[in-house]
Design a protein around this nucleic acid. Structure first.
Lengths: 263, 263
DNA sequence: TCTGGTGTTGCGCTATACGCAAGAGGGACG
DNA sequence: CGTCCCTCTTGCGTATAGCGCAACACCAGA
């Protein structure tokens, strides 16, 4: 399999690469800069962004004449979310979970090599919360990531485990074997936990969401400050996350077998 | 219909049209159908969606082999939101407003001929709430729409007013002159209200958000059921919305004058 | 098996989008 | 006020890249 665009239309690939470049470098980029990073002439970049701007996917800053992502993407993403069964079914359950736990709730899927947060409910108790929706987080130091990794098929899991594991905090797990052990525990217990592995003072638990055929397609996490979510509290909160995840799974058409997770 | 894509790359325009088609027809579309609607051969459509799928902007349903919008769009939209100063600055203020009012709060901008909701905070008191983010709503029967319309420049406003005004409820305003009167009141009062104009039993108030140069770029609304938001309650709630909108405006660099509305 | 749908590929042709270079603004600076 | 250097845009000729065609592979139903 070819690494990049195997079959397809090159100019479309370049246009999407422009969108990704604008997304990654949180800011504005000029035509010249875009052409340089794409490896194409400035003129080509200019025509590409003109097309993107015509459709509202990018907007130009009138004062700097540089380009940034536009509102059209928000429209498309909104349609994507409402068209996606998962988000539509999950939303009310996530809100209920946030109200029960009074903590921030996230829904995530595995997208490529990272965990993609696709929806979030912030608890009223949270003071200042940035939205994590649309952000990618590493899979090995988030509760959602551990869940998604734990239920991934062997080949894909080992491929991800073979990549270097970055340490964001002293508690982060950087040894693949230690992570394998944890993932086995996740499968045995049915939920995952992180204790100050992504950010210091931040704990979380997560539970798997299954599709009709039983495959795990998403994870629901509850995250909060360590002083409110002590080690002793995690099982109780995990119970609520498991219930919520099971509820979403049921809405997605999954029927629980007899030997269910916490029965 | 030939869209006016003056300068640009045709295949990119076609690819984006595919995304819009998938967004509008909330569901899944096959390659043949896409080719038919685009006016191109099935093979061309196949190659276009293959490229889009390579980058995660669309996904294929494994069972039906049809295409739908993918998670990649959510990632891009998330970056767009965080890269956009407006959303980043507004988020904490909206959360505070939701907590004070205990109702659902929306942030909207004018995008083309409709009102585009770009962020939403649902109150814990709301039972089952769908997310309106990314959805377009008509400008004449939403509080946000009235605010955005009221502060629009004359030419653009009259252009929008010349279009037919649909009635979703008996209370909806369908007469352009009646709407002009209301818009003048909005400018005089500083906030807009809707009383069961979009949905029966749904009331809302909205206030304008200004950019550094004073231009209105967005609107903040508080919406709730009519039995909790009676006519007598609206001024009090509007006061909170005005404070929130002013707070966002200040974060956007706007400095309040004495009472200078016009510029 | 046959038929009527899908979606995916080789292949030749021509339209299409590329790179080049010139043109048009816009600041910074002497 | 002119010069320089930066930016982005736009004609133009070329050949590359993407299009339509048609053949192929696949699936469902009769």
């Amino acid at each position: 399999m070819s690494n990049s665009q195997g079959s397809g239309v090159q100019s479309v690939g370049r246009a999407i690469t422009i969108l990704e470049l604008l997304a990654d470098s949180d800011g504005e980029l000029g035509v010249t800069e875009l052409g340089r990073r794409l490896g194409v002439h400035k003129a080509t970049a200019s025509r590409l962004v003109a097309t993107l701007a015509d459709h509202g996917l990018v907007e130009r800053n009138p004062v700097t004449d540089k380009y940034r992502l536009g509102f059209g993407l928000i429209h498309l993403a909104g349609s994507a979310a409402s068209g996606m069964g998962l988000l539509r079914e999950a939303r009310p359950v996530l809100e209920d979970l946030a109200e029960r736990t009074l903590e921030t709730v996230n829904l995530a899927v595995l997208d490529g090599d990272a965990v993609l947060n696709v929806d979030q409910i912030t608890s009223p108790r949270t003071v200042a919360s940035r939205s994590w929706v649309g952000r990618r987080t590493p899979y090995h130091c988030t509760a959602n990531g551990k869940v998604l990794l734990a239920y991934l098929d062997e080949g894909a899991r080992e491929r991800l485990l073979s990549m270097p594991l970055a340490a964001f905090t002293p508690n982060a797990i950087t040894d693949p074997d230690a992570l394998r052990t944890q993932l086995a525990e996740v499968r045995a217990r049915g939920f995952a936990r992180t204790v100050e592995e992504l950010e210091e003072g931040l704990n979380a638990v997560a539970a798997p969401v299954r599709r009709a055929d039983g495959e795990v397609i998403a994870a629901v996490s509850v995250a909060g400050p360590a002083f409110r979510m002590r080690a002793g509290d995690l099982p109780r909160i995990a119970r609520l996350a498991l219930d919520a995840a099971a509820s979403i799974s049921r809405r997605m058409g999954f029927v629980e077998r007899r030997h269910s997770v916490g029965g």
